[in-house]
Simulated scan of single mutants.
Amino acid sequence: MLSDKEIILRKARNTELESLYALVTDDEAWTAFNGPYFPYQTPTLDEFAAGQFKRLCEGDTALLIEYENRPVGMVSYYWECESTRWLEVGIVIYDSTCWGQSIGRKALAPWVSHLFKSLEIERVGLTTWSGNPRMMACAERLGMIQEARLRKVRYYQGEYYDSVRYGVLRSEWFAMLEDN
């Protein structure tokens, strides 16, 4: 379990399958910001249990975000290229009533620290798109640097958007923590 003053990052409990499934599927407003240019189909309960829920229960590459004693989203990581130790983080706040409260930034900070402490990596990346200005602001407030902007490579609802890549190096991250 990891925490920030208001946020707890933790593994899912086996008893939470149905409530977490409802969290992800009842209010799917999040899908309009979480790479909507990739096909998404609401999973069945069985698909959710075998995939995302299993990953959250294992807690290695994804953890629940708990805010005010209830799950509201998740943090995760994946290897862009494991052999070169190129790691990317992800975050989704499923509960749209929690948007705009800096929950994402408060959840990503201990997650990034945990990744630097537990994995042999020199950089943590975060990739988003220009159609998600809240995620771009979140990355910048965390102290991540915009490292790349691929212009007009994401096509969604008749409009082109940029893919935006952010990153922070281990030395930069721990220097920022010392300064705060």
Rank of each mutant, 00 (worst) to 15 (best):
A22S: 15
A22Q: 13
A22N: 12
V24P: 06
T25I: 06
T25R: 00
D26Y: 06
D27I: 11
E28L: 05
A29I: 05
W30A: 07
W30P: 02
T31M: 01
T31S: 02
A32Y: 13
F33Y: 15
N34G: 02
G35K: 06
G35F: 10
G35P: 02
P36I: 12
P36S: 08
Y37F: 15
Y37A: 14
Y37S: 14
F38V: 13
F38E: 06
P39L: 09
P39H: 12
Q41H: 12
Q41C: 08
Q41S: 14
T42R: 07
T42D: 00
T42S: 03
T42H: 01
P43W: 03
T44W: 11
T44P: 12
T44F: 12
L45H: 02
E47C: 01
E47I: 03
E47D: 06
F48S: 02
A49V: 07
A50W: 03
A50R: 14
Q52D: 13
F53D: 07
F53S: 10
F53E: 08
F53K: 07
K54C: 08
K54P: 07
R55Y: 05
L56V: 07
L56A: 10
C57I: 11
C57S: 04
C57V: 15
E58P: 00
G59M: 11
G59Q: 06
D60H: 13
T61Q: 14
A62L: 10
A62I: 09
L64N: 04
L64T: 08
Y67L: 09
E68F: 07
E68T: 05
E68K: 15
E68I: 05
N69W: 03
R70M: 11
R70I: 08
